[in-house]
Nucleic acid binder design. Structure first.
Length: 580
RNA sequence: GCGCCUGUAGCUCAACCGGAUAGAGCAACGGCCUUCUAAGCCGUAGGUUGCAGGUUCGAUUCCUGCCAGGCGUGCCA
């Protein structure tokens, strides 16, 4: 509807330009807005104000000329000039309920847009597979999954990807942690390194390894400590690195046994966790594959060819300062190992090589320092950094009964995502995680999320859906005739009914805007408003009246509301219960 | 120190690429259930949009400075 009206004003602008009143070079696109105040009509545009300066005319004077050139249309009932030069538009009565017809026609597709050829990749969560996901990862999972749904709704071809950090030092620490727990089962007396992973799951994996391998991997712990610094606050990192080195040498190929056991078990757990959370991935991309395929060396070679590398102090540096970074970054250390950043560079190159038109990263906010360098890398490799979008997700702070919950990953006493889901349920989790702008701190009130009260926005919205379902179950002998309902939409006359129809009509543009700006939270606000509009109407108007024409018109409106709520909640990964 | 983000009602947050009188929920106060789910609805009260300038017909929105808070700033991953 907005687009149609905008088209009329574009035609008017064409006329004014051909008349020489406005110079073609000064033309700006017509903006049509929803009015906030019903007294201003249904839609409004600021074209006159936007072009007043170029036309050397007072905005209201120009507005009159615009209206003189405005083509006739069945959908526009009246126009008026108001305020500093707004043109307010009142839509024809029949047009008001057009969204209801469209919604009931399109059903599950209502709010969704035509398919495009644009291929988008969204990479999210990508937590190191060194332990179960915790509540901090949950928000990235919920946000990323919703983003995928939104972009699909907007017609894009979307692929969800998880980058598995299965190479690098953290994985070695994980493997050696499991191996030391294993040694305990073989009767070795060990002192667990303070930089190792502490959680119970590490002990369980050690036990599992013992079940599989028995004593076949047993080595003397004293031998592993040979030449390794003491485990003190200052040397704990070199301590565990020494342990890793000695363990690798002592085990040889068997090193992969604790390594793969831990990786597989933890990654499987993460996959199950995310699947139960409704976050589905098309691709689990292995960092290790970048090493074995030679893509890391290839990426470094490409940067070398393009003249973006130099050597200093035995290390190879990427001159990222050429692309706005505040310092250059090491890609290959003096010991010959490539850095984590080198993997990132190869990964970017890999993503672009797969032909995505747009690549979106969802990162925890603690990674914001990496944005510049990753964009620098993309540019240095010759890719358009505009095709690369990085969205940050701030941490969620959990509260319970007004108390802030502390979590510490070090001690292993963190709250896992699974625990959170068990506690508050998937629906509340998904909703609460995305109800605020992603790049802002989120206060996650567990008490509220678990409460079955009107204060809980999830229940508030779901309740509206359930109420509608129950109405349809109460029809008894006289089934709903949708066509009769649509034929008598004119019997919907109250302000509440007009508001609902307007709200339904806004859904497609809300979805489109949410997808375009990558802001999932607007869906939450929209659904809360829609549910409020519905509850208000429902409270004051009986739907099941004797007059079948009126009844079915109201049921048609109710069904449209139900459809929009379900489509909206689907986008969020929240269920739409039929009864509560 | 430098960089990024954030300051809106007592609290948690909105405000549609700059629009008309800045909106919701919670908390406070007062009402509505013999009728489709009261897990609901209606009403009242609550504001110098951190401060000071600037750009504009118009600024919560854009720019500059200051104040306050958060995060980041390794040949770590």
């Amino acid at each position: 509807m907005k687009d149609a009206v905008a088209g009329l004003f574009e035609q008017a602008l064409d006329q004014l330009i051909s008349q020489g009143i406005i110079d073609a070079a000064d033309r700006k696109p017509v903006q049509i807005e929803n009015t906030r105040d019903p007294a201003h009509g249904d839609l409004a545009t600021n074209v006159a104000m936007m072009h007043a300066k170029a036309a050397k005319m007072a905005p209201r004077t120009l507005a009159e000329l615009v209206l003189e050139q405005l083509p006739q249309s069945d959908s526009v009932q009246s126009t008026e000039i108001a305020g500093p030069g707004f043109i307010n538009i009142r839509l024809a009565k029949g047009a008001a309920f057009e969204p209801v017809i469209r919604c009931l026609t399109e059903h599950h597709q209502f709010g969704f847009h035509q398919a495009t050829n644009e291929r988008v990749q969204v990479e999210f969560v990508s937590a190191n597979p060194t332990g179960p996901l915790h509540v901090g990862h949950g928000r990235g999972a919920a946000y990323g999954a919703t983003l995928v749904n939104l972009l699909k709704a907007r017609g894009h071809q979307v692929e969800a990807e998880y980058y598995v950090n299965d190479a690098g030092r953290q994985m070695n620490i994980l493997a050696v942690s499991v191996f030391i727990r294993y040694l305990e089962h073989t009767g070795e007396s060990v002192v667990f390194p303070s930089a190792g992973y502490q959680g119970d799951y590490i002990s369980e994996l050690g036990a599992t390894l013992f079940q599989h391998a028995g004593n076949s991997l047993q080595v003397s712990y004293d031998a592993l400590l040979a030449g390794v610094p003491n485990d003190s606050e200052e040397t704990k990192d070199t301590h565990i690195d020494g342990l890793i080195q000695n363990t690798k040498e002592s085990l040889g190929d068997d090193w992969l046994k604790p390594f793969d056991l831990a990786l597989t078990a933890i990654l499987d757990d993460i996959k199950d966790d995310l699947s139960e959370f409704g976050a589905d991935f098309d691709e689990w991309f292995s960092e290790k594959s970048l090493v074995t395929s030679g893509e890391i060396d290839q990426a470094i070679a490409t940067l070398e060819e393009r003249g973006h590398l130099y050597e200093q102090g035995g290390a190879i540096w990427f001159r990222s300062t050429d692309f706005g970074d505040d310092k250059d970054r090491v890609v290959r250390r003096d010991n010959g190992e490539t850095t984590y950043f080198a993997s990132d560079i190869a990964y970017i190159a890999n993503k672009f090589s797969r032909g995505f038109d747009r690549i979106i990263y969802v990162w925890g906010a603690d990674h914001h320092g990496y944005i510049v360098r990753i964009k620098a890398a993309a540019q240095a490799l010759g890719f358009d950094p505009e095709r690369l979008t990085i969205r940050l997700v701030q941490f969620a702070i959990l509260y319970k009964d007004g108390e802030r919950l502390q979590m510490s990953t070090r001690s292993g006493s963190f709250v896992t995502l699974r625990e959170l889901r068990d506690d508050v349920g998937r629906d509340a989790c998904r909703y609460f995680y995305v109800m605020r702008k992603a790049d802002q701190h989120l206060d996650f009130d567990l008490s509220l999320a678990t409460s079955q009260s009107k204060d809980n926005p999830v229940y508030y919205i779901q309740y509206a859906h359930a109420r509608i379902c129950r109405v349809f179950e109460g029809l008894e002998g006289q089934p709903f005739d949708e066509q009769r309902g649509l034929d008598h939409l004119t019997s919907l006359v109250t302000q509440e009914e007009l508001d609902l129809a307007t709200a339904i009509g806004r859904f497609p543009e809300v979805v489109s805007k949410a997808a375009a700006s990558l802001e999932a939270h607007v869906i939450c606000y929209y659904l809360q408003d829609l549910a409020a509009d519905f509850h208000r109407w429902y409270n004051g108007t009986r739907l099941l009246v004797d007059d079948m024409d009126v009844r079915d018109a109201r049921l048609a409106l109710a069904k449209a509301v139900q459809t929009v709520i379900r489509n909206g909640l689907d986008l969020l990964g929240v269920s739409s219960p039929r009864s509560m």
